[in-house]
Computed example of a mutant assay.
Amino acid sequence: MFFIDRRDAGKKLAEKLSVYRGEKIFVMAIPRGGVPIGYEISRRLQVPLDLIVPRKLPIPWSPEAGFGAVAPDGTVVLNEELLAGLGLTDREISDIAEEVLGEVRRRLRTYRGDRPFPDLSGKTVIVVDDGLASGYTMIAAVRALKKQDPKKVIVAVPVSPASAVKKLSQEADEVITLHTQPFGPFAVASFYESFPDLTDEEVMDLINESLSMARS
Rank of each mutant, 00 (worst) to 15 (best):
A162Q: 12
V142L: 02
I52P: 15
K16A: 07
L51Q: 09
K11G: 15
E201P: 01
D5M: 06
P150T: 02
D197E: 15
E40F: 14
F2A: 09
G85D: 10
F186Y: 04
F117R: 09
V19A: 07
T137K: 05
S163L: 14
I207V: 12
Y20E: 05
G66D: 01
I154S: 00
G85N: 13
V155F: 01
V125G: 01
D205Y: 14
E64M: 03
G113R: 06
M213Y: 12
P185Y: 08
A214D: 15
V53L: 08
D173V: 09
E171N: 04
A71H: 06
T110Y: 15
I93V: 13
D50R: 00
F186M: 02
E171C: 10
G10H: 04
E23N: 07
D197P: 04
T180L: 05
A156P: 05
V153L: 00
I52K: 11
V70E: 04
F186I: 03
Y111Q: 06
L78Q: 02
G122L: 08
A162R: 12
R105S: 07
P36D: 11
F2W: 07
V47S: 05
G85A: 12
A69R: 00
K56A: 03
P196L: 09
Y136V: 06
L86Q: 06
V76Q: 03
F67W: 01
R106Q: 12
Y136R: 05
E80V: 07
I139K: 04
